[in-house]
């Protein structure tokens, strides 16, 4: 039995004539411990797909099965890292994470919970900033807090919705390594949504492109057969990497071309000559 299963998912927003079908016929299966990346253009319905999996949205038709059971609501088993961090600005780093662990482990004592908070803050190396508010942190630090918050709840699966999209290239690279490092420790199942093909190849076991919406659907999958731990610089010369990368980019370019509809209508312009007001 697959760990996560998406069967013939359709998602429509609105009703009647004004409705738009964002996702059509999405099928996906993931095994336990697998790292899958979904790559797609902006506006192709990636966030909708993520929200269907984490339970914030319900599909119009089709079903999402998590460990064989349909997903009807959010769950502590599936941790989510949001695109825009979504930290509560009035709480400090520690309080933000404490709030999450308190919900996830309601039976633990306050001291135990605090221990967990400290442990995860240390894991993303933010211990000196534990009493700071999100506003005082840089974008990369904020995202690290979001990662710590998601992981502190000890989820079985971790869903990342363009987690590094808003960061600069250097911070991005560091955080990719950090996430991979954390993931490799206990091999949680991970789903990464991204618009960066290189990020997907570097991090995931499989890459699946999402054809742009409306009516977005998943394209053919690409397996990444590069051994872990992967080395960013060495990977650039790896023939498998180059081949996969080119194949994915070519595929994305092709569907990008398809998306552009060429207008064949010729407009006939009236023949006009300017009127002279002088004579």
């Amino acid at each position: 039995m697959a760990y996560l299963e998406l069967n013939n998912i359709y998602k429509t927003y609105g009703e009647g004539d004004g409705s738009t079908e964002v996702l059509s016929n999405i099928n996906l299966t993931m095994d336990e411990g697998e790292f899958v990346a979904i790559v797609g253009f902006t506006g192709s319905g990636k966030t909708t797909l993520v929200n269907l999996i984490n339970g914030l949205l319900q599909p119009t038709s089709g079903e999402v099965l998590f460990k064989g059971k349909p997903v009807t609501d959010t769950s502590h088993e599936r941790g989510v890292i949001f695109q825009n961090y979504s930290l509560l600005p009035w709480l400090t780093v520690g309080q933000n994470i404490y709030m999450a662990v308190k919900e996830a482990f309601p039976k633990e004592s306050k001291a135990d919970l605090m221990k967990r908070v400290k442990e995860y803050v240390a894991m993303v190396s933010l211990s000196p900033a534990i009493n700071k508010r999100p506003k005082e942190l840089s974008g990369g630090m904020r995202q690290r807090v979001a990662v710590a918050r998601a992981l502190a709840m000890n989820p079985e699966m971790i869903i990342m919705d363009e987690p590094l999209g808003a960061l600069d290239a250097l911070t991005r690279g560091n955080l990719q390594d950090e996430i991979l490092n954390i993931w490799s420790q206990d091999k949680r199942t991970a789903l990464l949504i991204t618009n960066d093909v290189d990020e997907g190849i570097y991090m995931a076991d499989r890459i699946i492109p999402l054809k742009p919406g409306p009516n977005a659907t998943l394209g053919p999958e690409f397996k990444i057969d590069i051994e872990r731990p992967r080395d960013k610089t060495a990977m650039n010369d790896n023939p498998v990497y180059k081949k996969t990368r080119n194949a994915i980019i070519e595929y994305l370019m092709d569907i990008g071309e398809e998306r552009k509809t060429v207008s064949n209508v010729e407009y006939k312009l009236p023949e006009l000559t300017p009127k002279s007001f002088v004579a």
Binding site: N54, G55, L56, T74, S75, H76, G79, V80, F82, N84, S86, L88, M99, A100, E103, A104, M153
Partner: peptide, 11 residues
């Protein structure tokens, strides 16, 4: 976003 956080944390 905050409402989504509340939902994901199951507050």
């Amino acid at each position: 976003d905050y409402i989504n956080v509340a939902k994901v944390l199951k507050l």
